[in-house]
Amino acid sequence: MLDFTKEFKEVKIIPAVFWYIFTLFIVIVIASIKGILTGDMDLLDNENLLSLISTTLFIIILLYKFRVNKDKLLLMIKDYLEKINIKEIFGVVTTQICLSMGISLLLIGIVYFLFPDILNKLLSESSVAEASSYGGLFIAMIITVICAPLMEELLFRAIIFKRISKKFNIYIGVIISSLIFGLLHIELAIIGAFIFGIACCILYLKYKNILIPMTVHFFNNLLAFLPQLDLNATTDTSPMTNNDAISSIMFGSILLLIGLSFFIRFIINNKKYLKSGFSPKLSQDNIYLN
């Protein structure tokens, strides 16, 4: 079986983080200079467009650092098409949706009973749409559905998870990389993001092909983004009540239990792949053999 966890050049964590910060810095500097010279600061104020440009540049740099070429990419795509398990992919996505929605609803209900005024203010502010035009919506969709899965899987799974696992062990690699991944998703579903990171690590180990967790990430983000597609949709900004909070806790608990049961079953069915870990890198002569 082809193993694409070892057929590309290793990329270290610190240089990868440096290039991420550097690309973001360069894009902001160029946008600032353009704004000063032209007197038009619209580009600098467009956070989504700046994020799209910097993320795209970072992905290109990572692909170069991994020494991705046409032959290896085509071979990896062929391997992906032979290995992909649609049922498992949608099972993981369903698990993540149940967990994220369950945790969010549960936390919203609990926070309401502790700090009702603060929660209603936060919910009111979050109801304001970030994208006010179809152009802005399209950019936001590209970032969320395409760029984020590409960049985050390369960074968190193919670099951070892999490097930490080799330095310590697989379990530490899974926990630390998924914890960082979760902490950088600061919305209420941060715990769901942590669990999602664990699932993607296992899929990367199981299939030895980063395109598999990228696909799961793509469908997860696509489903999460769908509610934003209607710019004309009205949002209910009425304050939450005690009954709303109780319903939120009840439905959140049910979804959380369903998601946890799916996740535990996923772990049990795939625990053997955690024991296998990463194989030593093949020599250049053996890259296309197996």
Rank of each mutant, 00 (worst) to 15 (best):
I103G: 07
I143S: 14
I146N: 01
L63K: 11
S126Y: 12
V174D: 01
L137A: 06
V174E: 02
A148H: 12
S133D: 01
Y112S: 05
L154G: 07
L114S: 10
L106F: 13
R163I: 10
S177D: 11
I164D: 04
L62S: 07
L74Q: 04
S165C: 05
I143G: 00
E82C: 01
I142E: 09
K166C: 02
M151W: 04
F115Y: 13
F115R: 12
F161S: 02
S132C: 11
I110D: 14
L99Y: 06
I84G: 01
D71K: 12
S126D: 05
T144N: 13
F138I: 13
Y134W: 13
L123W: 08
I170Y: 10
Y64W: 03
S104Y: 04
I143A: 00
M141Q: 02
E88R: 06
A131C: 02
Y171G: 08
S124D: 12
P149E: 15
A129P: 10
N85C: 08
I175K: 02
I118H: 01
I142S: 03
F115N: 09
I176S: 03
E153D: 12
L62F: 15
E125T: 06
K72Q: 05
L81Q: 14
L107F: 15
K83Q: 01
G91I: 06
C98R: 03
G135A: 09
I164K: 12
